[in-house]
Design a binder for these strands. Structure first.
Length: 772
RNA sequence: GCUCGGGUGGCGUAAUUGGUAGCCGCGUAACACUUAAAAUGUUAUUUCCUUAUGGAAGUGUGGGUUCGAUUCCCGCCCCGAGCACCA
């Protein structure tokens, strides 16, 4: 018989699928729909990562199973292609980012096709395609119309190496997420999106989703909803009040001083009345010079200064307490002012000790009563508005102009897409302007309203923009009249299952939920949540457990693996390595096991016999059990144990003299989503005309999951001393009698009195005896 | 510090959710096939004591509940991820 030749088989079927497009879907109302989604990749120059394969294969298995279950499955793919690495490469080489992107997507497409994913390639999208980003810009204009996009002068996180402003989410431990450089502060006018307006719903609506619990928790922590009281403290001898926010109004009698953030708007007003004005000004200046990291690190010692000559009145006991400003109070959370209760707050305690402020012991009030009596109930969020500007070239141009007369004027929708102009030099400028600023004939334009001279906005959008709505575009990727046709949006509805990385939980996942809710409010989509279910895969680390990185040189190239053992083996291996949701170190040596498994499946077809005489109950039961196990495990993403159970089955089948066509084909069907090429080939060898991937998912008979005999374990005082084979559901008395007859039982029970007998049906019997 | 995970053979892991701990795979050893090697197949493989037989210990650690605990409860130690002066 012929040997298993993965190169030949995989090439053969990939060619067939390329021309016949079996996974191209249309909106077919006769079938239930299933929308499977993976995060579309950023087509980096490094090519595909084995981590992509882990996520893609998992959803591919689910998509293929759903097809076999009769669903109309949309499993699309595209490119999230705007971004810094491409731009930096362009700066270095002078090659246009669009050309680099084209090369990279070509490579990725080729690599993905070589793994045999069942994507609908006819719906491929690319965020850098003007026909696509036309609609990203269009959605931005809708935000602008609803005043949810606005410009704000603010201190931004500035990366001095990448010369770019970063969103809070992109600052990791005070450093740039991309290059690790320490982030600095810079004053800049920025475009903002008012995600905080949606904070309440983004938090609450998680209740209705089927996201993994840890994903919900992480989003909730990020949104940071907290309920507390807003309480007014009057400034003594003035009508002015200071509003503080506290979650502990019950501690109000313990207030010994009040603290304002150094940036609090009241500070400037109060300065004239302060007796130590000079010192206070000096202190504020010093704080502002500190970087965010120095300022917000909980470990650095707190500092502050008293506003001498000013005191505030505690509304609970009318006591006058001093007013301070301190760097541990944040201007942009709550009201920027806190009441300090050293007995109940660790930070206030530290501060009090440092500056010798009094510490007052108190009895707590009822939290509800205190809120009603002294203030009002209020909800605050940690979530901040989204900094939406980037001073870079390779992003969607923000479609507005600045007119001297009319101010900020949105481009008319008819002028979309506003395409990126070709430039010579992609490098950002030292003064923080986008490279677009230097293209004067593009920048200088006419105001759409008054026709007078105007300048185009030169900031571009962050690369989270295009990915905030891409799944909607898949439903109707070529539409030029709308971002997608209403009918298609309705047909595909919510994404049924979205798998991706945990690192996107507080960025992409939250941003896209926000955009979706906005579109829902405009009546453009019919669900308020984009994703029904969200799961995530664990990282694949390099051998030894370090992160894979190009600079360390420990990156595994999937092409090399495919060449040697084939795509089917690589897919099975990545699913078999370990639990899907846990990080795991790559180990090239163990691939041999997955390869052997596929070779054994291949070889087994020689044992298939039309008149196989195996009517063994043991095998029939095992086949039913395996169908159940594999089916259930795929739903729970326990791919490792699904494969393990197929291995158990083949270990038994191999030992038979011959096997039935039926049993073999069940194995092939179960394996098909994991290893689509080899199973299709074997399906044809079994003389089937149809495709294995179009067929019917195997069913099991629940009544045939157990054998007629079971092994009963015999324990004495909870220790296993022997076992025997019994009829299933044997009468307790008979089980007891058999067990007592055994030599092992006699030996361990001895002459001791049996105090108690515990029988677990079909599993064990335990004799509890008194010790001598 | 807070919030989530996790700790089981030489290694990756599994365990019907309280019921024979170690399935499946890797590796290792011996044997078969071979002139030989590779591949493949067979057998063994938690550790310790024991000639076999047979014992004992054993799921990070210390307690507890139970006839019985990897699983449940309490305390502690390590590892990973996320957040972090959020009042």
């Amino acid at each position: 018989m012929n040997l298993y030749d993965h190169t030949k088989i995989e090439k053969k079927w990939q060619d067939v699928w390329e021309s016949s497009e079996p996974n191209k879907v249309t909106e077919d109302n006769k079938k239930p729909k299933f929308f499977a989604l993976i995060e579309f990749p950023y087509p980096s120059g490094a090519g595909m990562h084995v981590g992509h394969i882990r996520s893609n294969t998992a959803m591919d298995i689910i998509a293929r199973k759903r097809r076999a279950e009769g669903f109309n499955v949309l499993y699309p793919i595209g490119w999230d292609a705007f971004g810094l690495p491409t731009e930096n490469y362009a700066i270095k080489t002078g090659i246009q980012p669009a050309i680099i992107t084209k090369e990279n997507t070509d490579t990725f497409r080729k690599q993905l096709k070589a793994i045999g994913f069942s994507f609908d390639w006819s719906r491929e999208i690319n965020t850098t395609d003007p026909a696509y980003y036309k609609w990203t810009q269009w959605i931005f204009l809708q935000f602008l119309k609803k005043d949810l996009a606005y410009k704000k002068k603010m201190t931004i996180n500035w990366c001095p190496k990448d010369l770019i402003g970063l969103a809070n989410e992109e600052v990791i431990g005070g450093c740039c997420e991309r290059c690790g450089t320490k982030v600095e502060k810079k004053e800049k006018e920025q475009w903002m999106l008012a995600i905080t307006k949606y904070a309440e719903r983004l938090d609450k609506d998680l209740d209705d989703t089927d996201f993994l619990e840890k994903i919900k928790i992480q989003q909730r922590n990020w949104i940071g909803k907290s309920e507390g009281a807003e309480i007014d403290f009057k400034i003594k001898g003035s009508e002015d009040k200071i509003k503080v926010f506290t979650t502990r109004p019950d501690t109000i009698f313990g207030v010994t001083y009040l603290v304002l953030a150094p940036e609090h708007t009241l500070v400037e007003e109060l300065l004239s009345k302060v007796s130590n004005k000079h010192e206070v000004e000096k202190y504020i200046k010093a704080v502002k010079e500190k970087t965010d990291i120095e300022r917000t690190d909980a470990k650095t010692e707190k500092s502050g200064i008293e506003l001498k000559g000013i005191s505030v009145i505690n509304p609970a006991n009318m006591e006058a307490v001093p007013l301070w400003i301190a760097d541990y109070v944040l201007a942009d959370y709550g009201t920027g002012a806190v009441m300090a209760v050293p007995v109940h707050d660790e930070r206030d305690l530290q501060f009090s000790k440092k500056y010798n402020l009094p510490i007052k012991e108190i009895e707590l009030l009822d939290i509800k009563e205190a809120t009603d009596k002294y203030g009002k109930l209020i909800t605050k969020f940690k979530l901040r508005d989204w900094v939406f500007s980037r001073q870079r070239y390779w992003g969607e141009p923000i479609p507005v102009v600045h007119c001297e007369k009319c101010g900020i004027v949105p481009l008319p929708e008819s002028e979309l897409p506003l395409e990126l102009p070709k430039v010579e030099n992609y490098a950002p400028t030292q003064n923080g302007e986008s490279p677009l600023a230097s293209i004067t004939d593009w920048v200088n334009t006419k105001c759409p309203t008054c026709n007078g001279p105007a300048k185009r906005e030169t900031d571009t959008m962050p690369n989270w923009a295009g990915s905030s709505w891409y799944y909607l575009r898949y439903t109707d990727p070529k539409n030029s009249k709308a971002f997608a046709d209403k009918k298609n949006l309705e047909y595909w509805g919510q994404v049924d299952w979205y798998n991706g990385g945990m690192e996107h939980t507080t960025l992409h996942l939250l941003y896209s939920r926000f955009w979706h809710k906005f579109l829902f409010d405009l009546g453009l989509v019919s669900n308020s949540e984009p994703y029904k279910k969200r799961t995530s895969q664990g990282l694949i680390l390099a051998e030894g457990g370090a992160k894979m990185s190009k600079s360390v040189g420990n990156v595994i190239n999937p092409d090399d693996i495919v060449k040697v053992v084939g795509a089917d083996t690589l897919r099975v291996h990545e699913m078999f390595m370990g639990p899907f949701d846990q990080a795991i170190a790559w180990d090239t040596n163990t691939i041999a096991g997955s390869r052997r498994f596929i070779e054994r499946v291949w070889k087994l077809h020689e044992k298939v016999s039309e008149n196989a005489k195996n009517k063994k109950e043991e095998i029939a039961v095992l086949v039913h059990k395996t169908i159940k196990k594999v089916s259930d495990d795929i739903e729970e993403m326990r791919f490792n144990t699904a494969i393990s159970s197929m291995m158990v089955l083949i270990n038994v089948l191999e030992k038979q003299e011959n096997i039935s066509k039926h049993d073999y084909e069940v194995l092939l069907k179960l394996l098909a989503p994991f290893a689509p090429h080899v199973t299709e080939e074997l399906w044809k060898i079994m003389k089937n005309d149809d495709s294995i991937h179009g067929g019917i998912w195997p069913k099991y008979d629940p009544s045939r999951l157990v054998e007629s005999t079971v092994t009963i374990s015999v324990q004495v005082n909870g220790k296993t001393r022997g076992s025997f084979i019994s009829k299933i559901d044997e009468d307790d008395e008979n089980v007891k009698k058999t067990a007592l007859d055994m030599d092992e039982t006699k030996k361990w029970v001895g002459n001791n009195a049996v105090k108690k007998v515990i029988i677990i049906k079909n599993r064990l019997i335990n004799f509890v005896v008194g010790f001598p």
